[in-house]
Design a protein around this nucleic acid. Structure first.
Lengths: 256, 256
DNA sequence: TCGCAGCGTATCACATTGTGGAACATCGTT
DNA sequence: AACGATGTTCCACAATGTGATACGCTGCGA
């Protein structure tokens, strides 16, 4: 089914992920295709402006066009703009890192991150992380379609000793999160990082994003998590209101 | 040559550019392909995570994965990070809009924009614009390979009465810009917007980016452009230094 | 200096693969 | 109830993508 297209997309993705120019043979090896195949696909990518060709080194790299198109997609995620002011306020008041994440399958994508009330530039935004090990991730997963939850519960990967690795336990946690309207994470992703998260609604059946407050475990004690919760829920509700969603911390409509 | 792949990329691009969910028939019509063809390509895009399928409305839209990959590409453009501090300073000192642009063919892509010393979020960053009508664009074009200049000089499109629409005149302007080491734009893109631009070098034969100062024509008079030039050239040189390039406002090596 | 090993690129006969017309299923509208 | 528009599926055909092979080039070590 659409073999060449799928292969071509794989090349594009590998090129973008690499973050540096790559050679034909190199790519062909990684993707398990022949040199000729990789070569032809790369030519097509160059012809369409998705990749660039350094004639001297003979190497290929992803072109800015990919980034341009990506920005168009981000523009669709209107929550980013609508949340900006609230997030800044939240970051100042809490004094912790604040992030905004959306779900893509069983992963989470960070679409905004603030430190000391300032937007973080490099490194963090655009990063993909497994949903089951994050507060924002669990929050979003809790309202995801059953099929997605099942997929996430199939052998959840461990990142620390505290990561939920049991499928049934994860589903139970998701039920709890859904019932409470907020999620918490204590060292499940990075050993010494804790966080809490709340959903943002736009009136649909699923939250469009989740806001999280994250901090090192020395500061982010259980007590402090509880203390910050009200602030977080307020912010999330305020953003939800701007998004045209209910201000409640729970889904506006019941789910099967 | 790689027909299906090229078609598939066209679908992906159309999807991303649209910024809203689109239907099969709709896309097929725009791209001049059959419904079945568009449908199959869309299925492949969904299968690979590049697109999403709204089962209820039967419509397709670009997935966040595209944005994620785009961010990876942007990370390659290290100039963005290295320039950040200088740009903020420049924005504060000048009190005008400051932007950072890179060249992609005969177009310019804005990779950063500051207003009042604050990074602008929506709308501007990631936008593509024709190089020949912008100060940053002319600056970058001035050091582009001859083939690119020729392409840009073939029927330059008019945007205002002041846009350079004569190919020969454009090439002459590019020579001037190259000789001077900076570019200026007075109402060639938007009627009442003027700007100046300077190149950023990383040691290569072409500038990696250009910094621009932009403002409404009431404020941005000829005199003020001259006044801001020193500030601009200083900033550009400082960024170039951080990028490992010469601090000069002209190319480090002569070009044929 | 030579030869080798690695690279990116070009070629070509083969059959796998993508193709588009037509038919079907589902809507909402007339 | 009939229509027009949509998204979806099917299938015979051949155009299209395929990979082994060969070529030219560069850099490295003998």
């Amino acid at each position: 089914m659409e073999k060449s297209f799928v292969k071509g997309l794989a090349v594009l993705e590998a090129l973008a992920r690499a973050g540096r120019p790559r050679g034909v043979t190199d790519l062909a090896r990684e993707l398990g295709m022949t040199k000729s195949n990789a070569h032809r696909l790369l030519q097509a990518l160059v012809a369409t402006g998705f990749a660039r060709h350094d004639a001297e080194a003979g190497q290929y790299s992803a072109a800015p066009k990919l980034w341009e198109l990506g920005m168009r997609v981000l523009a669709q995620v209107e929550v980013r703009d609508k949340a900006a002011a609230q997030l800044r306020q939240l970051a100042r008041r809490s004094g912790e890192w604040v992030n905004l994440a959306i779900r893509d399958g069983i992963h989470v994508l960070f679409i905004e991150r603030l430190e000391d009330g300032e937007t973080v530039r490099g490194g963090y935004v655009g990063v993909r992380a497994p949903a089951h090990a994050l507060a924002t991730g669990k929050m979003l997963l809790a309202h995801a379609p059953a099929a997605v939850q099942q997929e996430a519960a199939r052998r959840p990967q461990a990142f620390t000793a505290r990561t939920i690795v049991d499928g049934a336990a994860l589903l139970a946690e998701l039920r709890r999160v859904r019932a409470r309207g907020h999620a918490s994470n204590r060292g499940e992703w990075r050993e010494m990082v804790n966080s809490i998260a709340a959903p943002i609604w736009d009136g649909g059946a699923e939250p469009v994003a989740a806001v999280g407050i994250t901090g090192p475990h020395q500061r982010m004690t259980l007590a402090r998590q509880r203390e910050l919760l009200a602030l977080l829920l307020d912010s999330a509700a305020a953003i939800s209101r701007r998004m045209g969603g209910g201000a409640l911390g729970v889904a506006p409509v019941a789910r099967g």
